[in-house]
């Protein structure tokens, strides 16, 4: 997929260079060439397999954005903490899958179940020992603490494993690809998109449509009152942090066979994820899911149309959204 994108870029650039060269040396020839070829200039020819390939890459990235920003939304809602350690915990998910395979012989499917639990338990440990002390303080303290935690965790992993990636194989059941006629769809990537969508929908359903979810939403609004109704809110907050972090761990396992398992894999992703959270609206569950998938696709489309902008398009969208809706697309103005 990436190779295809690069070739496409080289091709466009090559064509442009050739045209400029011709224009500078033989103007008349250039004019003739432009007249003859304008209708079929490469920019206007739709290369469907490249387009759908980029859309698929976008959907995959969108799956990770959605899973990560969903966890951030749950955590921000209940803890009022902007969890900068989320990227590091995502990375720990990928490493956890790697260790489970190489140290304990637990394969992909086992890791898919165990990793969210293990990473979630680590999150609960962080919440109990550190984060809960910041409960009534300004956002800034939580941000600084989790940012520091992220640097420490990433630093430790870099120290022991270097910056280059460790391989993690696609499980044999999910190797291969489907020929859809207009493109090849690798089975593993389809699985990532489908599983992420299911997990996101299930989380949305649990929070918006069940009585447990009603308790969570109420505790987001007024934790003191929910507690005065007899609910152990601090325990609920701890579990919610564990759950949000568990989602990051799950995303890490899903990412392991696609990206390599690298200490900085989360740091690269998390900046975009925070843009997603801001666009969707801080703390909005639906907002984080929809925006996550949508921005992945927008990024993919940009890679097809104008690759140079693909790294910035998310932030351009963020700036535009904030100008029109400062609370984000799905956020409530406070």
């Amino acid at each position: 997929m990436w190779g295809k994108r690069l070739n496409f870029r080289v091709w466009i650039r090559g064509a442009a260079l050739t045209r400029r060269f011709l224009a500078e040396t033989t103007p008349s020839l250039a004019l003739r060439e432009r007249a003859a070829h304008q209708p079929s200039l490469p920019m206007f020819a739709i290369n469907t397999s490249a387009l759908f390939g980029q859309l698929l890459v976008g959907l995959i990235n969108g799956s990770f954005y959605a899973l990560l920003s969903l966890g951030l939304a749950v955590i921000f809602g209940l803890l009022n903490i902007i969890n900068f350690a989320h990227g590091a915990l995502f990375m720990m998910g990928a490493f956890c899958a790697y260790f489970l395979l190489n140290l304990a012989g637990v394969g992909y499917w086992g890791a898919l179940v165990l990793t969210p639990v293990i990473v979630g338990a680590f999150g609960i440990f962080l919440e109990r020992t550190m984060l809960h002390r910041l409960a009534n303080l300004d956002h800034l303290y939580g941000l600084l603490l989790t940012f520091g935690l992220a640097l420490i965790i990433q630093g430790l992993f870099q120290n022991y494993f270097g910056s280059s990636g460790l391989p993690y194989a696609i499980p044999p059941e999910l190797t291969g690809a489907q020929n859809l006629g207009f493109m090849f769809l690798p089975n593993y990537r389809a699985w990532v998109v489908v599983l992420s969508a299911i997990v996101c929908f299930a989380t949305w359903f649990a929070i918006e449509k069940t009585s447990l979810g009603a308790l969570l939403r109420a505790a987001t609004e007024n934790p003191a009152l929910v507690r005065a109704f007899g609910v152990n809110v601090p325990r609920m907050i701890t579990l919610a942090y564990g759950f949000g972090v568990g989602l990051a761990g799950l995303a890490g396992v899903l990412a392991a066979p696609i990206n390599q398992v690298r200490p900085l894999m989360g740091a690269d992703l998390i900046i975009v994820v925070f843009a997603v959270v801001v666009i969707g609206g801080m703390g909005s569950i639906l907002g984080s899911i929809v925006t996550g998938f949508a921005l992945g696709v927008i990024e993919g489309l940009t890679k097809y149309i104008y690759p140079e902008a693909s790294n910035t398009v998310v932030f351009v969208v963020m700036a535009l959204v904030l100008m029109v809706k400062p609370a984000g697309l799905f956020g409530r103005a406070s």
């Binding site: 939403r217 109420a218 987001t220 609004e221 007024n222 003191a224 009152l225 507690r227 005065a228 109704f229 007899g230 609910v231 152990n232 809110v233």
Partner: peptide
């Protein structure tokens, strides 16, 4: 307060505390 509530005391606060969501 959650333990106190479980003894059988309930509060209806001044600002009513109806949850908007």
């Amino acid at each position: 307060s959650d333990r106190i509530a479980r003894l059988g005391i309930a509060i209806c606060p001044e600002e009513r505390g109806i949850f908007a969501s």
